[in-house]
Amino acid sequence: MSVLPFLDVALALLIVGLAVWTIAARVLFASVVGYVAYGLLLALVWVRLYAPDVALTEAAVGSGVTGVLLITAGKRLGAARAGEAGPAPGLAQKLFAGALALLVAGALAAVILILPDPAPSLAPQAAAAADGPGAGLGNPITAVLISYRSFDTMLEKVVLILAVLGVWSVGADKAWGAAPAPLGQRNPYGASVFLAQMLAPVGAVIGVHIFWVGADAPGGAFQGGALLAAMWMIAMMARITEPPRIDARRLRLALVAGPAVFLIAGLAGPLMAGSFFAFPHAFAKPIILFIEAFMLLSIAVALPALVAGPPSGRSE
């Protein structure tokens, strides 16, 4: 009898418990903190599902950067009065929502239990393609993201640009072009500065390491970029560096570098390998790493930009 099943069950119960807390907590900020804890545990579940790539992304983006975003928002809105968002739902509404939620969850659980066995899988095809038009990469997920489903990945980077612009566009007219408000207080604590000075360089090395091994092992541009983004945000919180002006050409170039290089490489496909978004087999790996390097840059810049928010009139 192995201990593992008990571990899994404990993890599952904890996660559901925290999810219930996130929904049920009365205080807004308590709910947010519950969600951050929930995100941490979710990373463990992904490891148990043999998905270290996803676990890393979840840890960095789903729990880390999202956590900072939500904590900031929760703290700023926390002072607001409880009832201001609208009247509390009535009993009928609660019953309706509960019944609908139960129905959907129950049906979903039932359907998951009867998924076909053996499960269909593209893993064999992905393995076969790795010798063909694919990548010759040791990490099949990187191969999927940059080669087989490269089109999705490029469009997702365009989505990130739109999200950044969308966040900026929420700002005031007269602030346009300025930098977002600083992430830290005016006189940061010594401990903050010390931590950032120690953490950021180490983190940058780790981020690049995770990007670099991503070709053959879990990791890649997403995960490495998210870690770099977190390090930049830590530096900004300690006021070692400030959020850049949103009209800075360099910032905008960095934001579009990933999708732009991806798009150009995709367009060059017909010349190189006879098809859009195809890469010649002999050079696939260097080309993919080249594209990934720019994606790393774009992600590392886009995530902090999304958290930093719209330009602020104060920082002229």
């Binding site: 365009v158 050409r249 798009l263």
Partner: peptide
């Protein structure tokens, strides 16, 4: 892939390139 298929890719990439250019040039 059929003849004319590349038009589909171009029709998608054209506005994508437009977004990127507009964002950078401003």
């Amino acid at each position: 892939t059929t003849p004319g298929g590349s038009l589909l890719v171009l029709a998608i990439l054209l506005p994508c390139a437009g977004i990127i250019l507009s964002f950078v040039l401003g």
